[in-house]
Protein backbone atom coordinates (compact mmCIF):
# COMPACT_ATOMS: atom_id res chain seq x y z
CA UNK A 1 0.00 0.00 0.00
CA UNK A 2 2.67 2.56 0.91
CA UNK A 3 4.60 1.59 -2.24
CA UNK A 4 1.48 2.35 -4.29
CA UNK A 5 1.05 5.65 -2.59
CA UNK A 6 4.71 6.43 -3.20
CA UNK A 7 4.39 5.53 -6.85
CA UNK A 8 1.28 7.65 -7.19
CA UNK A 9 3.03 10.50 -5.46
CA UNK A 10 6.05 10.15 -7.76
CA UNK A 11 3.75 10.02 -10.73
CA UNK A 12 2.00 13.16 -9.55
CA UNK A 13 5.34 14.84 -9.06
CA UNK A 14 6.46 13.82 -12.53
CA UNK A 15 3.22 15.11 -14.00
CA UNK A 16 3.65 18.37 -12.11
CA UNK A 17 7.17 18.73 -13.44
CA UNK A 18 5.95 18.02 -16.95
CA UNK A 19 3.21 20.60 -16.61
CA UNK A 20 5.75 23.09 -15.33
CA UNK A 21 8.09 22.36 -18.22
CA UNK A 22 5.23 22.71 -20.67
CA UNK A 23 4.27 26.05 -19.14
CA UNK A 24 7.84 27.30 -19.31
CA UNK A 25 8.12 26.13 -22.89
CA UNK A 26 4.91 27.95 -23.76
CA UNK A 27 6.11 31.10 -22.07
CA UNK A 28 9.40 30.82 -23.95
CA UNK A 29 7.53 30.25 -27.20
CA UNK A 30 5.23 33.18 -26.52
CA UNK A 31 8.12 35.47 -25.70
CA UNK A 32 10.04 34.40 -28.80
CA UNK A 33 6.82 34.81 -30.75
CA UNK A 34 6.47 38.29 -29.33
CA UNK A 35 10.08 39.10 -30.09
CA UNK A 36 9.51 37.68 -33.54
CA UNK A 37 6.41 39.86 -33.42
CA UNK A 38 8.70 42.80 -34.21
CA UNK A 39 11.18 44.52 -32.05
CA UNK A 40 12.89 47.57 -33.39
CA UNK A 41 16.65 47.05 -33.21
CA UNK A 42 17.22 50.80 -33.36
CA UNK A 43 15.37 53.99 -34.12
CA UNK A 44 17.28 53.92 -37.41
CA UNK A 45 16.76 50.67 -39.29
CA UNK A 46 18.66 49.54 -42.35
CA UNK A 47 17.24 48.28 -45.62
CA UNK A 48 18.17 44.64 -44.92
CA UNK A 49 16.16 44.60 -41.72
CA UNK A 50 13.16 46.20 -43.36
CA UNK A 51 13.32 43.83 -46.33
CA UNK A 52 13.07 40.79 -44.07
CA UNK A 53 10.14 42.29 -42.17
CA UNK A 54 8.11 43.44 -45.16
CA UNK A 55 4.58 42.07 -45.03
CA UNK A 56 4.68 41.56 -41.28
CA UNK A 57 1.19 42.22 -39.84
CA UNK A 58 2.57 44.51 -37.15
CA UNK A 59 4.58 46.61 -39.58
CA UNK A 60 3.37 49.79 -41.23
CA UNK A 61 5.80 51.40 -43.68
CA UNK A 62 5.09 55.10 -44.08
CA UNK A 63 6.12 57.12 -47.10
CA UNK A 64 6.68 60.69 -45.95
CA UNK A 65 7.30 62.09 -49.41
CA UNK A 66 4.96 64.10 -51.60
CA UNK A 67 2.05 62.16 -53.16
CA UNK A 68 3.56 62.55 -56.62
CA UNK A 69 6.80 60.89 -55.48
CA UNK A 70 4.76 58.11 -53.91
CA UNK A 71 2.81 57.56 -57.11
CA UNK A 72 6.05 57.32 -59.06
CA UNK A 73 7.27 54.43 -56.95
CA UNK A 74 7.43 53.42 -53.30
CA UNK A 75 8.47 50.56 -51.08
CA UNK A 76 6.09 47.68 -51.52
CA UNK A 77 3.16 47.93 -49.14
CA UNK A 78 4.12 51.42 -47.88
CA UNK A 79 1.29 53.84 -47.16
CA UNK A 80 1.48 57.47 -48.19
CA UNK A 81 1.62 60.04 -45.44
CA UNK A 82 3.19 63.19 -46.85
CA UNK A 83 5.02 65.17 -44.18
CA UNK A 84 3.24 68.30 -45.41
CA UNK A 85 0.07 66.87 -43.86
CA UNK A 86 1.60 67.04 -40.39
CA UNK A 87 1.25 70.85 -40.19
CA UNK A 88 -1.87 72.51 -38.91
CA UNK A 89 -3.85 73.83 -41.85
CA UNK A 90 -5.11 76.91 -40.02
CA UNK A 91 -1.79 78.07 -38.62
CA UNK A 92 0.43 80.91 -39.84
CA UNK A 93 3.44 79.41 -38.12
CA UNK A 94 3.10 75.85 -39.37
CA UNK A 95 2.28 74.45 -35.96
CA UNK A 96 1.78 70.75 -35.40
CA UNK A 97 -1.34 69.20 -36.89
CA UNK A 98 -4.43 69.41 -34.67
CA UNK A 99 -5.64 66.57 -32.43
CA UNK A 100 -8.59 65.57 -34.57
CA UNK A 101 -6.63 65.90 -37.81
CA UNK A 102 -3.79 63.81 -36.38
CA UNK A 103 -6.26 61.16 -35.32
CA UNK A 104 -7.82 61.06 -38.78
CA UNK A 105 -4.44 61.12 -40.54
CA UNK A 106 -2.85 58.34 -38.54
CA UNK A 107 -5.99 56.23 -38.29
CA UNK A 108 -6.33 56.28 -42.06
CA UNK A 109 -2.69 55.27 -42.46
CA UNK A 110 -3.29 52.36 -40.10
CA UNK A 111 -1.12 53.63 -37.28
CA UNK A 112 -2.07 52.11 -33.96
CA UNK A 113 -0.35 51.50 -30.64
CA UNK A 114 0.57 47.92 -31.41
CA UNK A 115 2.07 48.74 -34.79
CA UNK A 116 5.71 49.34 -35.61
CA UNK A 117 6.05 52.30 -37.97
CA UNK A 118 9.02 52.62 -40.28
CA UNK A 119 9.22 55.97 -42.06
CA UNK A 120 11.23 56.90 -45.11
CA UNK A 121 11.64 59.87 -47.39
CA UNK A 122 13.68 60.77 -50.43
CA UNK A 123 16.85 60.88 -48.42
CA UNK A 124 16.60 64.44 -47.08
CA UNK A 125 16.12 63.05 -43.64
CA UNK A 126 13.99 65.93 -42.44
CA UNK A 127 10.75 64.71 -44.01
CA UNK A 128 10.95 61.34 -42.37
CA UNK A 129 12.14 62.85 -39.09
CA UNK A 130 9.22 65.29 -39.16
CA UNK A 131 6.72 62.42 -39.38
CA UNK A 132 8.74 60.54 -36.76
CA UNK A 133 8.56 63.50 -34.38
CA UNK A 134 4.83 64.11 -34.94
CA UNK A 135 4.15 60.46 -34.23
CA UNK A 136 6.18 60.61 -31.02
CA UNK A 137 4.71 63.96 -30.03
CA UNK A 138 1.29 62.33 -30.31
CA UNK A 139 2.32 59.48 -28.11
CA UNK A 140 3.29 56.69 -30.50
CA UNK A 141 6.11 54.65 -29.01
CA UNK A 142 7.26 52.32 -31.76
CA UNK A 143 8.52 54.33 -34.71
CA UNK A 144 11.77 54.19 -36.67
CA UNK A 145 13.35 55.73 -39.76
CA UNK A 146 14.76 53.84 -42.73
CA UNK A 147 18.40 54.72 -43.19
CA UNK A 148 19.07 56.18 -46.61
CA UNK A 149 15.43 56.51 -47.56
CA UNK A 150 13.85 55.44 -50.80
CA UNK A 151 16.84 56.20 -53.11
CA UNK A 152 19.00 53.84 -51.08
CA UNK A 153 16.28 51.19 -51.05
CA UNK A 154 15.75 51.43 -54.79
CA UNK A 155 19.50 51.58 -55.37
CA UNK A 156 19.81 48.19 -53.77
CA UNK A 157 17.12 46.80 -56.04
CA UNK A 158 14.78 46.05 -53.17
CA UNK A 159 11.04 45.55 -53.90
CA UNK A 160 9.18 48.68 -54.83
CA UNK A 161 5.93 49.34 -56.54
CA UNK A 162 3.76 52.03 -58.10
CA UNK A 163 0.52 50.39 -56.95
CA UNK A 164 -0.88 52.36 -54.04
CA UNK A 165 -1.17 50.23 -50.91
CA UNK A 166 -4.55 49.99 -49.21
CA UNK A 167 -3.95 50.76 -45.54
CA UNK A 168 -5.85 48.90 -42.84
CA UNK A 169 -7.65 51.68 -40.95
CA UNK A 170 -7.12 51.75 -37.22
CA UNK A 171 -8.05 53.90 -34.26
CA UNK A 172 -5.25 56.22 -33.37
CA UNK A 173 -5.55 57.87 -29.97
CA UNK A 174 -3.59 61.12 -29.76
CA UNK A 175 -1.67 61.31 -26.51
CA UNK A 176 0.26 64.58 -26.72
CA UNK A 177 3.62 64.26 -24.97
CA UNK A 178 4.77 67.09 -22.76
CA UNK A 179 8.40 66.08 -23.17
CA UNK A 180 8.29 65.96 -26.96
CA UNK A 181 6.25 68.97 -27.99
CA UNK A 182 7.42 72.37 -26.79
CA UNK A 183 5.32 75.49 -27.21
CA UNK A 184 6.28 79.14 -27.05
CA UNK A 185 5.75 79.19 -23.29
CA UNK A 186 7.90 76.10 -22.71
CA UNK A 187 10.67 77.65 -24.85
CA UNK A 188 10.39 80.95 -23.03
CA UNK A 189 10.67 79.12 -19.71
CA UNK A 190 13.67 77.17 -20.99
CA UNK A 191 15.60 80.43 -21.31
CA UNK A 192 15.49 80.79 -17.55
CA UNK A 193 16.36 77.16 -16.93
CA UNK A 194 20.04 76.17 -17.01
CA UNK A 195 19.00 72.50 -17.32
CA UNK A 196 17.47 73.03 -20.75
CA UNK A 197 19.52 73.80 -23.83
CA UNK A 198 18.13 75.41 -27.01
CA UNK A 199 19.34 74.14 -30.35
CA UNK A 200 18.98 76.24 -33.49
CA UNK A 201 18.85 73.82 -36.46
CA UNK A 202 18.81 76.51 -39.13
CA UNK A 203 21.74 77.41 -41.34
CA UNK A 204 24.63 79.43 -39.99
CA UNK A 205 23.53 82.43 -42.06
CA UNK A 206 20.09 82.35 -40.53
CA UNK A 207 21.52 81.91 -37.04
CA UNK A 208 23.74 84.98 -37.46
CA UNK A 209 20.97 86.92 -39.15
CA UNK A 210 22.46 87.58 -42.59
CA UNK A 211 19.35 85.98 -44.08
CA UNK A 212 15.92 84.96 -42.78
CA UNK A 213 12.78 83.19 -43.90
CA UNK A 214 10.83 85.26 -41.42
CA UNK A 215 10.23 89.01 -41.33
CA UNK A 216 12.97 89.43 -38.71
CA UNK A 217 16.48 88.09 -38.89
CA UNK A 218 17.97 86.75 -35.71
CA UNK A 219 17.70 83.96 -33.18
CA UNK A 220 16.41 82.99 -29.79
CA UNK A 221 18.94 84.03 -27.09
CA UNK A 222 21.19 81.35 -25.60
CA UNK A 223 20.53 78.96 -28.45
CA UNK A 224 23.34 76.88 -29.93
CA UNK A 225 23.57 76.58 -33.68
CA UNK A 226 23.78 73.07 -35.15
CA UNK A 227 22.73 73.39 -38.82
CA UNK A 228 20.60 70.40 -39.70
CA UNK A 229 23.00 69.38 -42.45
CA UNK A 230 25.64 68.65 -39.84
CA UNK A 231 23.65 65.55 -38.87
CA UNK A 232 23.99 63.88 -42.25
CA UNK A 233 26.43 63.08 -45.01
CA UNK A 234 25.37 63.31 -48.61
CA UNK A 235 26.55 60.75 -51.12
CA UNK A 236 24.97 61.51 -54.49
CA UNK A 237 21.20 61.51 -53.95
CA UNK A 238 21.47 59.38 -50.85
CA UNK A 239 21.62 61.11 -47.49
CA UNK A 240 23.00 59.04 -44.61
CA UNK A 241 23.15 59.85 -40.96
CA UNK A 242 26.54 60.36 -39.45
CA UNK A 243 27.79 57.72 -37.08
CA UNK A 244 26.68 57.88 -33.51
CA UNK A 245 30.25 58.68 -32.41
CA UNK A 246 30.42 61.70 -34.68
CA UNK A 247 26.97 62.87 -33.66
CA UNK A 248 27.76 62.44 -30.00
CA UNK A 249 30.63 64.82 -30.52
CA UNK A 250 28.44 67.32 -32.36
CA UNK A 251 25.95 67.36 -29.51
CA UNK A 252 28.49 67.08 -26.71
CA UNK A 253 27.39 70.50 -25.41
CA UNK A 254 23.96 69.11 -24.49
CA UNK A 255 25.68 67.15 -21.72
CA UNK A 256 22.71 65.25 -20.44
CA UNK A 257 20.42 68.27 -20.35
CA UNK A 258 16.98 68.43 -21.88
CA UNK A 259 17.11 69.93 -25.36
CA UNK A 260 14.58 71.97 -27.31
CA UNK A 261 15.31 72.19 -31.01
CA UNK A 262 13.85 74.84 -33.30
CA UNK A 263 14.27 75.99 -36.87
CA UNK A 264 11.99 78.09 -39.07
CA UNK A 265 8.85 75.99 -39.19
CA UNK A 266 9.59 72.94 -37.11
CA UNK A 267 10.74 70.61 -39.86
CA UNK A 268 14.54 70.75 -39.94
CA UNK A 269 14.67 70.78 -36.14
CA UNK A 270 13.10 67.34 -36.11
CA UNK A 271 16.34 65.97 -37.57
CA UNK A 272 18.18 67.13 -34.45
CA UNK A 273 15.33 65.68 -32.42
CA UNK A 274 15.68 62.28 -34.08
CA UNK A 275 19.45 62.24 -33.68
CA UNK A 276 19.22 63.17 -30.02
CA UNK A 277 16.57 60.49 -29.47
CA UNK A 278 18.91 57.97 -31.02
CA UNK A 279 21.68 59.12 -28.72
CA UNK A 280 19.39 58.41 -25.79
CA UNK A 281 18.82 62.05 -24.83
CA UNK A 282 15.66 63.91 -23.97
CA UNK A 283 14.81 66.26 -26.84
CA UNK A 284 11.71 68.23 -27.77
CA UNK A 285 10.82 70.38 -30.78
CA UNK A 286 9.48 73.88 -30.61
CA UNK A 287 7.11 73.60 -33.56
CA UNK A 288 6.31 77.31 -33.78
CA UNK A 289 10.03 77.96 -34.17
CA UNK A 290 11.47 81.24 -35.42
CA UNK A 291 8.36 81.99 -37.51
CA UNK A 292 6.23 82.23 -34.40
CA UNK A 293 8.90 83.51 -32.02
CA UNK A 294 10.03 86.38 -34.25
CA UNK A 295 6.58 87.95 -34.69
CA UNK A 296 5.87 88.06 -30.97
CA UNK A 297 6.93 91.47 -29.62
CA UNK A 298 7.19 90.04 -26.11
CA UNK A 299 9.77 87.34 -26.79
CA UNK A 300 13.47 88.05 -26.20
CA UNK A 301 15.50 87.92 -29.39
CA UNK A 302 19.00 88.38 -30.66
CA UNK A 303 18.37 90.41 -33.81
CA UNK A 304 20.65 90.88 -36.80
CA UNK A 305 21.36 94.46 -35.97
CA UNK A 306 22.82 93.61 -32.61
CA UNK A 307 24.99 90.74 -33.76
CA UNK A 308 28.67 91.35 -33.34
CA UNK A 309 30.56 91.20 -36.66
Amino acid sequence: MPADVGAAFNKGKRLGRLAWLATMAMIALCSTARSADLVLPDLLVDTQWLETKLGHPSLVVVDARAPTDYAAGHIEGAVSLPYTQTFASNSDYKLIVSLSRARALFSTAGVARDKVIVIYDSGEGTHASRVFWVLEAYGHRRAAILDGGFPHWRGQGLPHSIVPAVPVPSTFVPEPQVDRLAGKLATRLALANPNIVLIDSRSEDEFFGSTSKAALAGRIPQSVNVPWLRNVTRMGDVTRYKSSEELREVYAFVAGRKAIAYCNSGKDATLAYFVLRRLGMNPAVYDGSWLEWSVDAQTPKVLAGTIAP
Binding site: A88, L95, V97, L99, Q177, V178, L181, G183
Partner: peptide, 14 residues
Protein backbone atom coordinates in the same frame (compact mmCIF):
# COMPACT_ATOMS: atom_id res chain seq x y z
CA UNK B 1 -8.54 71.06 -31.03
CA UNK B 2 -5.02 72.28 -30.27
CA UNK B 3 -2.11 69.97 -29.59
CA UNK B 4 -0.44 72.67 -27.50
CA UNK B 5 -3.43 73.01 -25.22
CA UNK B 6 -3.59 69.25 -24.90
CA UNK B 7 0.09 69.19 -23.98
CA UNK B 8 -0.49 71.80 -21.31
CA UNK B 9 -3.36 69.75 -19.94
CA UNK B 10 -1.12 66.69 -19.88
CA UNK B 11 1.56 68.72 -18.10
CA UNK B 12 -0.96 69.76 -15.48
CA UNK B 13 -2.41 66.27 -15.16
CA UNK B 14 1.14 65.11 -14.47
Amino acid sequence: DSAHMAVETSARLR
